[in-house]
């Protein structure tokens, strides 16, 4: 049974959840080789990041070499191999957003949260990341909180990102 099929609030049973997700991902596409990334997305959506044991599970249940799993995970910027905060803030820094002040916005967030880009606040509330073009230049400076668009966020209105009514990972 995949975690989605269980009663809400059922605590994670890590290994059997991973096995169920792997089986579901394999069945979802015409060829099983396409299952790895959908599997990783499911794990990360719940756990917030891809812990080493989850990558072991990917290798085991999808019958792939562990190094292969690692090589795929390391290629894609959305896959995280470190714990992330309840809210992951992506600030787009590509040209249109930069013209609208995305660097000052990032700076304000760094100052307020007391962390640098790439880091998570010690209390685990926020992870602050740069994003390359989010395809939302009409919302410049554009951001995402847990992959939900927020924008435009002018630098002086950085607080919006911390208060925004976007569900945390656990609530989503």
């Amino acid at each position: 049974m995949t975690p989605e099929e269980k009663a809400p609030g059922t605590p994670p049973d890590w290994d059997s959840d991973w096995a169920a997700w792997a089986a579901a991902a394999k069945a979802e596409y015409p060829r099983a080789q396409s299952a790895l990334m959908p599997f990783l997305h499911r794990v990360q959506a719940r756990d917030g990041w891809l812990r080493p044991e989850a990558l072991d599970a990917a290798a085991r249940y999808l019958e792939l070499p562990r190094q292969y799993v690692e090589s795929v995970v390391s290629f894609y910027s959305l896959f995280r191999t470190e714990p992330t905060g309840h809210r992951t803030i992506h600030v787009c820094v590509s040209l249109s957003c930069a013209l609208a002040g995305s660097d000052a916005l990032l700076h304000n967030l760094e100052e307020t949260l007391g962390i640098r880009v790439g880091q998570t606040t010690p209390d685990g509330s926020y992870t602050l990341l740069e994003a390359e073009c989010l395809a939302a230049c009409d919302l410049a400076p554009a951001c995402q909180v847990n992959l939900r668009y927020v924008g435009p966020v002018p630098p002086e209105r950085f607080q919006t990102l911390l208060e925004e009514e976007v569900p945390t990972r656990e609530e989503a």
Binding site: Y29, M37, Y76, L78, C133
Partner: peptide
Amino acid sequence: RMYLYRGAGAY
């Protein structure tokens, strides 16, 4: 048959 597949952050 139609399939939907998500990338993971790579231009």
